[in-house]
Nucleic acid binder design. Structure first.
Lengths: 209, 209
DNA sequence: TAGATTGTTAATCGATTAACAATC
DNA sequence: TAGATTGTTAATCGATTAACAATC
């Protein structure tokens, strides 16, 4: 039994864990057995100290002089991130961006399976993209209840995002992954994760100057 | 003439500016004339202090008791972010994600126009998506030189991203917006902006627990 | 053994938050 | 005028970096 007191991981560290995982997958393909923080850092242009600190939030001991066993560290990160559990999500907006996400098979390896897509365009209902069936948006609530889904993905244009969010909230969705460039108005208890391309673009342009 | 000493904006503040801009566009549609930091903060679930601090990096004075003129603040943010200049970019990878970006008309309002797309699939050469022509990847270098492009967007699958980055570097691209979940190996002087979905997903899952 | 690397505590740095004078 | 809000300087908080003992 572990202590009750668990240091919670800072968000910046949490965001870096998937990057470490990606490196570990590459190294595993090369049959590397051990990897050190310095090696990981070098590959990602981070500092070794930062990598070591980040990994300290994970339940794993490395070996002095050798580093971490690649397979163990990879598994432990997956474990920490919950990538071996499998969450199901519903996606709303079967346009190009929606289809891009549906086609992205790697999501499954990261614990997320999109089990159905929805769209307001009735012509799309019944279509199948990358093995995922599209339903009319009117079916969202019923199916969410029936399949006990609690993650929703929004890939509709900005002006429709709020309407979709309202439907999701009403249907009992607890977490929303929002790809529309709109600030969603939802009850406090709903988790919203925004992917805002404009912010990236602002940083890129600034750095280019 | 301004002083030589300009306080540079912290990256977190820079990333928030586009969010403020979005709010201002909404308010402008509503014909709101003035807006205060508190109002902006309330709409985005930020603190008023943070908004005020962020806006202080921008060259604009507000009016005590009233706030900022919506139109002025909007223009000044656009100016600060360089959204009235227009940069041209080439996109490589005309799959679903690539098409999603090509269809996203709002990019133009943010100073970025994608003027051509490239793909290694020769069947796509000559196709036109949302007004943008697709060329074979072999044409990338020549067209980049000729059109003096210095921003590249990578929307190919992970295993091909490095190859594309190499072509971009060789062609004189200075900034890369990378949507592939791979760490790119490029010379130090090249700016890379990664959009890593796994990091978002990690944060969302963590918060849901 | 010597040396490299981990794990962890302490120091530093930078962003966020607070405080408050200036102003309309 | 009183009160709300800006603009800016100071205090706080948290993440990053440094330092160093422990270990194989």
């Amino acid at each position: 039994m572990k202590g009750l007191e668990t240091t919670i991981i800072p968000e910046p560290s949490l965001r870096r864990l998937p990057l470490y995982h990606q490196i570990l997958e590459l190294e595993l393909e090369n049959n590397t057995e051990f990897i050190s923080c310095s090696k990981i850092a070098e590959m990602l242009d981070f500092t070794p100290i930062q990598v070591r600190k980040d990994l300290s939030y994970i339940n794993l001991i490395g070996m002095p002089k050798k580093g971490y066993k690649v397979i163990e560290l990879k598994d432990e990160i997956e474990n920490f991130l919950g990538w071996n559990r499998n969450d199901e999500a519903f996606l709303v907006g079967a346009g190009n961006l929606g289809k891009a996400l549906l086609s992205y098979a790697k999501l499954k390896d990261k614990g997320l399976t999109i089990t159905a897509a929805f769209d307001k365009n009735k012509n799309l209902a019944g279509e199948n993209f990358f093995g995922v069936t599209v339903f009319d948006i009117s079916k969202f609530q019923e199916l969410t209840y029936r399949m006990k889904i609690h993650i929703g993905i929004i890939t509709v244009p900005a002006p429709e995002a709020q309407k979709v969010a309202d439907i999701m909230v009403k249907s009992g969705i607890r977490g929303i992954w929002n790809f529309a460039p709109s600030k969603l108005n939802v009850p406090e208890k709903i988790i919203v994760q925004d992917v805002n391309l404009s912010s990236y673009l602002a940083v890129l342009s600034q750095k280019l100057k």
